[in-house]
Amino acid sequence: MLALVVVTLYPFLYVLFASFSDPADLLQHRGLLLAPTGFSLESYKLVFDNPMISIGYLNTILYVIVGTALNLTLTSFAAYALSRKGVRFVGPIMFAIVFTMFFSGGLIPTYLNMKQLGLLDTRWAMILPSAISTWNLLVMRTSFASIPAALEESARIDGANDFRILLRIFIPVSLPIMAVMTLFYGVGHWNAYMDALIYLRDRNLYPLQLVLQEILITNSTDSMMSSVADVDKGLLQETIKYATIIVATVPVLLLYPFLQRYFVKGVMLGSIKE
């Protein structure tokens, strides 16, 4: 387990140490990097001065907040309806839902569908196509199905309708699974890359991951170093990439500890059927 931890953790620590290193010292370093070589914040300064990083951050935060709220709303509604006894045609509906996990229309039909719906080059292209995850729906449905029927029956005797039962009983009782779904959906939106690459052309709509793609893969760092002397550009190029990775990763790492205590409990609640 210790070896696995080291293998998993060291690449992140390497990127972290390299991002704070002096570019000249980092270029000359050989072997394992166990601490920053020198110390420099120039890469972070250039990253935060890049307007596309700010635009990408704001867009991604918007996609995460709006998308996750929509995900949780639709998934909880569907999971509640499909977990209730006596609902008609649950079997065929579940078959149609599970079928999508194994077969899909493919990229071209999906693109044409998005085009006909007028979603290309809009923010909704990053939100609506992933409104409900089939796997998350199955996990939440199983969790809702494990809630004692007596709670629902007593609420109905008191005159509560389905919306009130869901909002006042099922969701408060299922906070662990809701926290897990928030983490799954939130991280999915934060890391969303392929949909943006396919559906977006307006750079003002780019999420952070697409901005990273330009910086890390296409080496589009020249615009970030316009004020840097030519002799230093080659040195700073690598540390800018490391700093960009850290800037994009830290928010998720800060969020995880607050949800981690619900993680195992929520997954277990949604994966075990009595």
Results as ranks from 00 to 15, higher is better:
136 N>S: 15
138 L>C: 12
138 L>Y: 15
138 L>R: 10
139 V>A: 11
140 M>F: 12
140 M>L: 15
143 S>N: 15
144 F>C: 09
144 F>S: 06
144 F>T: 10
145 A>C: 11
145 A>R: 12
147 I>W: 06
147 I>F: 10
150 A>M: 10
153 E>H: 13
154 S>Y: 11
154 S>H: 13
154 S>R: 09
155 A>F: 07
155 A>P: 12
155 A>C: 09
157 I>Q: 09
157 I>S: 08
160 A>I: 09
161 N>D: 08
163 F>T: 14
163 F>A: 14
165 I>R: 00
165 I>T: 03
165 I>K: 00
167 L>F: 15
168 R>H: 14
168 R>A: 15
169 I>E: 01
170 F>S: 11
170 F>R: 13
171 I>M: 01
172 P>C: 03
173 V>A: 15
175 L>G: 11
175 L>S: 13
176 P>Q: 12
176 P>H: 13
177 I>P: 08
180 V>S: 08
182 T>D: 11
184 F>D: 09
185 Y>M: 10
185 Y>C: 12
185 Y>G: 12
186 G>I: 05
188 G>P: 09
189 H>R: 15
190 W>T: 07
190 W>L: 05
190 W>S: 03
192 A>E: 15
194 M>C: 07
194 M>W: 15
197 L>R: 08
197 L>E: 03
198 I>A: 06
198 I>P: 01
199 Y>N: 09
200 L>S: 07
200 L>G: 07
201 R>A: 07
202 D>R: 03
203 R>N: 14
203 R>E: 15
204 N>R: 14
204 N>Y: 11
204 N>A: 13
205 L>W: 00
208 L>V: 02
209 Q>G: 04
209 Q>C: 04
213 Q>H: 14
213 Q>P: 04
213 Q>N: 14
214 E>M: 07
214 E>N: 13
215 I>A: 03
215 I>E: 03
215 I>H: 02
215 I>Q: 02
216 L>Q: 01
217 I>Q: 04
218 T>Y: 13
218 T>H: 10
219 N>T: 06
219 N>L: 06
219 N>I: 02
220 S>R: 10
221 T>R: 03
221 T>K: 01
223 S>G: 04
223 S>W: 02
225 M>G: 02
226 S>H: 05
228 V>P: 01
228 V>L: 04
231 V>C: 02
231 V>F: 07
232 D>I: 07
233 K>P: 01
233 K>V: 00
237 Q>F: 00
238 E>L: 13
239 T>M: 03
239 T>Q: 01
239 T>S: 06
239 T>N: 05
